[in-house]
């Protein structure tokens, strides 16, 4: 047996990523804050609870329609904090820069960070910069950590979904991954495709103002909607039924998916959220979402069920059904 190596698919957000975390990383560190594996950790102290999260950002190319690595680094962390009901307050910013990187490009990325931090209302409270030799990193990697205060009376966790709950999705699927892919060498296509990269804290605030009994929120980033729903179904030990006809996918995203054999349900999003809510609150919340710029195209996409525990079932366009699994391996563009 040859020595096991990290594959790109270990970073895809799908099953391999889960296995890597579960088998190699978690066993060493398990503690009550880490164990729920929500998007942020909850740390209790006398004055309430603090949310803490961290994420590293690598993207190729660094600039894409609708954003860049800097914007991504702020939005990703702001969104992870928001998903457990925290108001994001402070971020750290660590840059790992490859020798020879353009200072002009760095300036552009920094000002993009500034702009979106303003929009999200967070402060960059601390930071670090390392420069590594040419070839030791690919241009620029960013890590941000963030803290925020969890709103009192709010309890959001992937463990909270209950049979009968409604599943809401805040908008179109796959815009981010497709916008990035459209810029890659070899796959270039032109179009009006723009990444959905956005800070969702304001939308979340409006939703929690309207309804404090939201059970769970998640942003379907790597691995896409299908993987995120599977994670929640597992954590809450429930089933889910999703209606294919309710899933919003832009024509251009659909077109590229058809062409390259990709499935929009597994594409990464950077400005979308899934909310699991008691069904009697669903319509009201949907209205709140639709009134917000980041939730204009929100849809109620399905229900949490008693049956099919730990599984997500898709009701297809023509009335059939199939199981929606987690992402397995990475999605490679294919011809057959």
């Amino acid at each position: 047996m040859s020595e096991e190596k990290i594959l790109l698919a270990h970073g895809s957000g799908g099953k391999l990523s889960h296995d890597l975390i579960k088998q190699i990383i978690l066993p060493q560190f398990l503690n009550p804050s880490l164990e729920p594996l929500d998007d942020s950790a909850k740390i209790n102290n006398q004055e309430g609870s603090i949310a803490l999260t961290t994420d590293s950002y690598v993207v190729n190319p660094l600039f894409f329609p609708g954003g860049d690595i800097g914007k991504l680094a702020v939005c990703g962390t702001v969104n992870d904090l928001s998903m457990i009901g925290a108001t994001p307050s402070y971020l750290s910013l660590s840059l790992i820069v490859e020798e020879g990187f353009s200072i002009d490009l760095l300036k552009r990325i920094i000002s993009s960070i500034h702009e979106v931090a303003e929009e999200a209302g967070v402060n960059i409270a601390t930071g670090d910069t390392k420069v590594v030799e040419h070839g030791a990193a690919d241009q620029l990697f960013i890590n941000t950590a963030g803290i925020g205060w969890i709103r009192p009376g709010i309890n959001l966790s992937g463990k909270n979904a209950k049979p009968g709950d409604s599943i809401l999705l805040s908008g179109h699927l796959g815009d981010h991954e497709m916008a990035v892919l459209s810029q890659r060498e070899g796959f270039k296509f032109q179009g009006d495709l723009i990444s959905d990269c956005a800070p969702l804290n304001n939308l979340v605030e409006k939703m929690l103002d309207a309804c404090s009994s939201v059970r769970c929120m998640r942003d379907p980033t790597r691995g896409g909607l299908a993987t995120t729903l599977n994670e929640i179904a597992l954590m809450s030990n429930v089933g889910m039924v999703i209606e294919e006809e309710k899933l919003p996918v832009r024509e251009s995203v659909k077109g590229i998916c058809e062409l390259l054999g990709l499935d929009p349900l597994y594409l990464a999003n950077e400005g979308k959220l899934i909310a699991i809510v008691p069904s009697d609150e669903a319509d009201r919340l949907l209205k709140v979402m639709k009134n917000h710029p980041w939730g204009r195209d929100a849809q109620m996409i399905g229900k949490v069920t008693e049956e099919n525990r730990k599984k997500v079932v898709l009701h297809t366009l023509i009335g059939g059904h199939r199981i929606l699994d987690m992402l397995t391996g990475g999605q490679y563009p294919r011809i057959c």
């Binding site: 296509f189 832009r250 251009s252 995203v253 077109g255 590229i256 058809e258 054999g261 057959c336």
Partner: peptide, 26 residues
């Protein structure tokens, strides 16, 4: 075995063309 999608021809230059597939150009 073989993925293939319909696209609308928008522009032709010799043996190359631009095709519109769901609003993006390839």
């Amino acid at each position: 075995m073989c993925l293939s999608v319909p696209g609308k021809i928008l522009k032709i230059e010799k043996s190359r063309a631009h095709a519109d597939v769901g609003g993006f150009l390839r």
